[in-house]
């Protein structure tokens, strides 16, 4: 179950799945000279098709940076990211990013936001798609509402729906539920799992919340503090829905706590 990455530069993978995404020796240094900040240190990882992977690490370690590199918004200082064998050169609508800061467009309604990426579809099909995803994320009745009239959780759902509506192969979620209260967060997690099981997207989910990682993902990639290195990779071999008080759950969670070097007691 727990496979510590002995050689951080060697790609770490869950052997059973065909790799879809592969990051090879990604390093990122911001600035130069005295001001240089070393954020990513030779990170290599693989993500299989249809897999739900969490990138877990302390705040400020470089998770968003890594996800931005993977998504093609940032070019790494060294290393590269391959998807289906092709180097990533920029963002692509087949792989949609859900931003940590609120990324819904405040000048568009819920409908407008969800349909944002559907500009090349015929009108009728666009409307069907929008209606479908409005329904899926439970925003029926709010189609004409502007983001400022929605709660934080609703806005986050709009953003997830906007990403899903273009039917991407992959979703990159950067702490999507970080700003939500704990109840809404739990609801959103199970909704995300429901969507993932229905649509089988490949998901890379960034979080600094250990429980969130263990509840959601097939595999947890644990990053160290800055500069981020892969510290360990943990397979979560539990079927959904997961019993978060089962011995196995606690064992996995405590394994990660150990790996990070945290005590189990507060």
């Amino acid at each position: 179950m727990t496979s510590a990455a002995a050689h951080p530069s060697a790609p770490a993978t869950s052997a059973t799945r065909e790799p879809m995404l592969r990051a090879e020796g990604v390093s990122m240094i911001f600035g130069r000279g005295d001001q240089a900040v070393n954020v990513l240190d030779n990170v290599s990882l693989e993500v299989g098709k249809g897999e739900f992977v969490c990138l877990l690490g302390p705040s400020g370690c470089g998770k968003s940076t890594m996800l931005n590199v993977i998504a093609g918004f940032l070019t790494p200082t060294s290393g590269r990211v391959l998807i289906d064998g092709q180097a990533v050169r920029g963002p692509d609508r087949r792989r949609v990013f859900v931003f940590q800061e609120r990324g819904v467009f405040p000048w568009l309604t819920v409908e407008g936001n969800i349909g944002f990426g559907l500009f090349d579809l015929p009108q009728a099909e666009r409307e069907t798609r929008i209606a479908h995803y409005v329904e899926m994320v439970g925003l029926k009745g709010f189609e004409k509402a502007y983001p400022r009239e929605l709660s934080g959780g609703m806005k986050q759902r709009v953003e997830v729906a906007r990403a899903l509506a273009v039917d991407p192969d992959m979703l990159y979620l950067d702490e999507p539920f970080g700003a939500l209260d704990s109840i809404t967060r739990l609801v959103m997690r199970s909704e995300l799992l429901r969507i993932w099981e229905a649509e089988r997207k490949t998901i890379i989910f960034v979080t600094h919340d250990i429980d969130e990682a263990v509840q959601l993902s097939d595999r947890v990639i644990v990053l160290s503090a800055r500069p981020a290195k892969i510290q360990t990779i943990v397979d979560i071999d539990m079927p959904h829905p997961r019993d978060i008080s089962s011995p196995r759950y606690l064992e996995l969670r405590d394994g990660i706590l150990d790996a990070i070097g945290l005590a189990h007691k507060v």
Partner: peptide
């Protein structure tokens, strides 16, 4: 904010 521009680029604009 960068997010808006990035989101725009992400959707293939």
């Amino acid at each position: 904010p960068d997010v808006y521009l990035n989101a725009g680029r992400n959707f293939g604009l």
